[in-house]
């Protein structure tokens, strides 16, 4: 029979996970259905909306466009890995800037922004808009999301400053 389950071992938010999955199961599906990590949302399933964005070996990627078997041996970070003791500074910035309405897009934006801020913290508004441009939001009109990430970047640059609170 085609498509029998195969073993997969990966690390998710620092924890080793061992599973058996059909090859056609996407990483998004594996995280949600097998591991119960439903913070990773699935919108378009075609790579277009960004809701399913997770971090694999340090890069923000679409978990709907990867089969779980492709993540063998990889280090995966999901939104559940953020702020395990209270809110992560990026989440706090989203809260403060009212960058969340229905919240469907939020985990994807957070994971995209997480990697963007690891790359650099001196983003200007235009470059950051483009960097976040692969993620869609139907509610906020984007401005508060950009505000939030800029505030988090500022806080990261000046840990003791006003923006860090």
């Amino acid at each position: 029979m085609t498509g029998q389950p195969v073993p997969v071992t990966l690390r998710v938010n620092g924890r080793r996970e061992v599973g058996r999955v059909e090859p056609r199961v996407t990483l998004a599906e594996f995280l949600r259905e097998e591991l119960g990590l439903t913070g990773t949302h699935v919108g378009c399933e075609q790579g277009v909306c960004g809701a399913c964005t997770v971090v694999v070996d340090g890069a923000a990627v679409r978990s709907c466009l990867m089969f779980a078997v492709q993540a063998e041996g990889c280090d995966v970070e999901t939104v559940e890995g953020l702020g395990r003791d209270g809110l992560h500074p990026l989440q706090q910035a989203f809260w403060d800037a009212q960058a969340v309405q229905c919240g469907f897009c939020t985990p994807g934006f957070l994971m995209t922004a997480l990697v963007a801020l690891r790359e650099r913290t001196d983003w200007d508004r235009t470059a950051l808009r483009e960097r976040l441009g692969g993620n869609l939001c139907r509610c906020t009109g984007y401005e508060p999301i950009v505000d939030a990430v800029l505030a988090a970047a500022e806080a990261a640059r000046n840990p003791g400053g006003e923006a860090a609170r």
């Binding site: 090859p23 056609r24 399933e45 075609q46 790579g47 709907c64 466009l65 089969f67 492709q70």
Partner: peptide, 26 residues
């Protein structure tokens, strides 16, 4: 062949492609 999957996986999700064997070359 499965490389980055950024074109092939959407085509498979839409069932525009239905390969029986995927060979991951990455």
């Amino acid at each position: 062949v499965l490389a980055g999957g950024q074109s092939l996986v959407p085509m498979m999700a839409l069932r525009l492609a239905r390969p029986e064997v995927l060979v991951d070359i990455t």
